[in-house]
């Protein structure tokens, strides 16, 4: 932790740099979403735009966490708490999202290979009648 006056003075410069980086990041997100010339992927919004937007947001979020929230030099306990929160939130999002994309239930025939697939009349997948 930046505790001494010297360190804090140095840190303040860093905060300003990060401030600038965050502004640039924000401008960049908006630019790639608004100006057709900078559009990635196909015309208009698509998956690639979403990924790009989320990547920029994640970078910005990391900067805030690492520098402003001092996660670049924190006690192990803090990493544990915060990490646990993120892991659980991830479980929540991942499993909830997954539950609707079940390959068998929702007939994604490619993934459902080897399982019963209602769209494709299966023949003896499991080796017995």
């Amino acid at each position: 932790m930046a505790d001494s006056v010297e360190e804090i003075k140095k840190a303040k410069k860093l905060y300003l740099i990060i401030f600038g980086a965050l502004l640039v990041g924000t401008a960049l997100t908006v630019a790639v979403a608004t100006f057709p010339a900078l559009d990635v992927g196909g015309h208009g919004f698509d998956g690639k735009d979403a990924v790009l937007g989320l990547i920029i947001a994640s970078v910005k979020a990391s900067l805030v966490m690492l520098i402003f929230m001092h996660l670049n030099h924190e006690k192990p306990l803090i990493y544990f708490f915060y990490g646990l929160g993120i892991v659980m939130a991830f479980f929540c999002m991942w499993l909830i999202g997954w539950s609707k994309s079940d390959p068998i239930q929702y007939g994604n025939s490619e993934k459902a290979d080897g399982f019963y697939n209602p769209e494709k009349p299966t023949t003896n997948v499991h080796g017995h009648d």
């Binding site: 499993l95 539950s99 079940d102 390959p103 239930q105 399982f115």
Partner: peptide, 9 residues
């Protein structure tokens, strides 16, 4: 009706 794969998990 979540589907069998996730149920198995």
């Amino acid at each position: 009706g979540m589907g069998p794969v996730i149920s198995t998990f």
